[in-house]
Design a protein around this nucleic acid. Structure first.
Lengths: 340, 340
DNA sequence: ATATTTTACCAAAACGTTTTGGATGTCAAA
DNA sequence: TTTGACATCCAAAACGTTTTGGTAAAATAT
């Protein structure tokens, strides 16, 4: 069933059917309703390839998933599926398509963006896992592709983005710990060059300053995010060296797993002798023992807002926007109160 | 740059260019090479919407991701990304597209398949998370859509599938345990209605019989897969009731996490007093403490073979195939030898 | 030397839409 | 009664390919 047969059935022109379904005002509401009803009945829906060819618009959002680097199977994808789930709500209601590509290495990743633009002709792209400086932004701007970044570069050029409120989250954590009289708060950073990690680390330093606590380099280490065992080793070393530490802030979930191991091996009771707090994830919220107190974020809202922005961008007078997901602390008993 | 301008540049007809890139034999190898070379130079690639419209073939593989039910953020997606990674290799080289849809509930899931077929006009579909009886198979057969199942129904109708060798894996585990003199082997099943779980459980019973061990209902429980804590509770109960148990086979990774908790709370030393073995995953291989001995499978091969089959299906005389991933045991020290 | 087959190319139709630029009829204002 | 504005519809062109059904030249067979 194509538009020709369908319009013949309704004794209307092809044009009228097309414009009725397209939502144009030069079709009376009465006929429009009839057309929509009959389309359902005859199971007619416009051939998307013909539509896209004729209109020159693909109405498709592209996305490249990197299947390398971070431990792709857990951490990375955890947030990923929450994001997708949020996106999905808008996609469905707005009839926008979503096209994913996969890259097994960085060479493939570069190609993927070019393919997305030149071969698959997507209109719009969602960028994720942003680096501190991200060259993909140049590529997209050069090709005049609309995009929303999931995450931010260090220097915000003029583009739209959605992100966790990393600084706000760290502040929330720090205040939470200060309220429980923690003074010697250690920070576990990651070596990888992601901007979210940089933001968190910077916020930690800033918060120390604001609260008149001098930065102590024995309270600070940097670990590989995908290797909890390496983290465990370094954290153990740190805790042995600096016995005054009462709380550990872990920049990522995997290092929190390492922190648990380190504490266990030193026979430090988590939530009694020492506190652990991190960013929420399915890992620390369901799999670790004990479950870990964490700042949680509505990551699905990120996805939803990203798609919303991409759609709004079709308006001529769109101004770049941003969205920060609001953090909140989920207590799971791994943070204790220090006696004054 | 479209085919018209491009062919004009090369002083060739549109037809010749199209057929050269399509790999037809009515173009000399010399001109074909020239065309391919120049296409790269001028960054020409056929508009996919026009191609698909003209040819009537979408050359697209569809996939529906269910964002509900199982704990989507970890378990489910773990295998998922390995699978995708394998698929990707074939997709890239064969120039097949991959189109994903997402479903936040079972209603959306049903709609998704219909949309995939009627709206997005995909040629082929990969089915996953198969139920013991799966009604989606009927839908696809009725609509004459080519598909490969990732997993199997209980009664194999005539279709192509790829799957873990669940029976082989359980046999491998059982023999491995028997060799270490285990006799009282408990089995942790899951309540969910997935066929992989059914196959594993059946294989366990079969293996007992083959080795002349009577099934003991005190060695067998059924838990919810997404709730390690519930699993821990039930396993603890079982171990308290039946003190003779020396080994636990966990049907899924999450129940293995529960098993660890149960053993810890009973002060049973894992790998000394009691053994735990399960199916491999990023969870039990990197996150648990201790890491758990498990049967591992090359899940990326599943994806690769699935795409291979889908492509082969274009041949008129294709006969339905299947592929079983070969299991192997990864020792991580949680299985001990029992004294005779 | 002639007839036949093969090779290498091409013009035009077809795919199913959207969009442009009217056409017709109705209604209110002059 | 006439004029202009508006509402509602439509025919035809355009989008960029693939495919069909050819033709001419070259190679091969007779």
């Amino acid at each position: 069933m194509n538009i020709k047969d369908f319009s013949k059935k309704l004794k209307l022109s092809i044009t009228t059917v097309s414009r009725a379904l397209g939502g144009y005002s030069d079709v009376s509401e009465k006929t429009r309703k009839r057309i929509i009803l009959q389309a359902k009945k005859y199971n007619y829906s416009p051939n998307p390839n013909a539509s896209r060819l004729a209109s020159g618009k693909s109405n498709t959002v592209g996305f490249v998933v990197s299947l390398y680097g971070l431990n792709t199977n857990t951490l990375n994808q955890a947030g990923f599926f929450e994001f997708i789930s949020g996106m999905n709500k808008k996609l469905q209601s707005e009839d926008v398509q979503f096209f994913m590509m996969f890259a097994n290495d960085s060479e493939e990743e570069k190609n993927a963006y070019n393919k997305l633009i030149n071969v698959h002709k997507v209109d719009k792209i969602i960028l994720h896992n942003l680096k501190i400086n991200d060259e993909r932004i140049k590529l997209l701007k050069k090709n005049n592709i609309k995009f929303v970044a999931w995450g931010r570069t260090k220097n915000l050029q003029n583009y739209s983005w959605v992100d966790l409120d990393n600084e706000g989250s760290i502040n929330l954590i720090m205040d939470y710990l200060f309220n429980k009289n923690h003074k010697n708060i250690a920070y576990i950073n990651i070596v990888e060059n992601y901007n979210f990690a940089f933001q968190r680390q910077q916020a930690y330093l800033k918060s120390l300053k604001k609260n008149n606590i001098k930065f102590n380099k024995n309270n600070y280490i940097t670990v590989k995010t995908e290797e909890p065992d390496q983290a465990a080793l370094l954290i153990k070393k740190m805790l042995t060296k600096n016995k005054k530490i009462t709380a550990l802030i872990c920049s990522t979930e995997y290092s929190a797993v390492g922190a648990i191991k380190a504490c266990n091996s030193l026979n430090k009771k988590i939530g009694k002798d020492i506190s652990i707090i991190t960013f929420d994830s399915p890992v620390v919220s369901t799999l670790t023992n004990p479950l870990i107190t964490a700042v949680s974020h509505p990551r699905d809202k990120l996805g939803l807002n990203a798609i919303e922005m991409l759609i709004e961008m079709d308006n001529k007078n769109y101004k770049h926007k941003s969205y920060l997901a609001k953090p909140k602390i989920i207590e799971r008993g791994t943070v204790h109160k220090v006696k004054k």
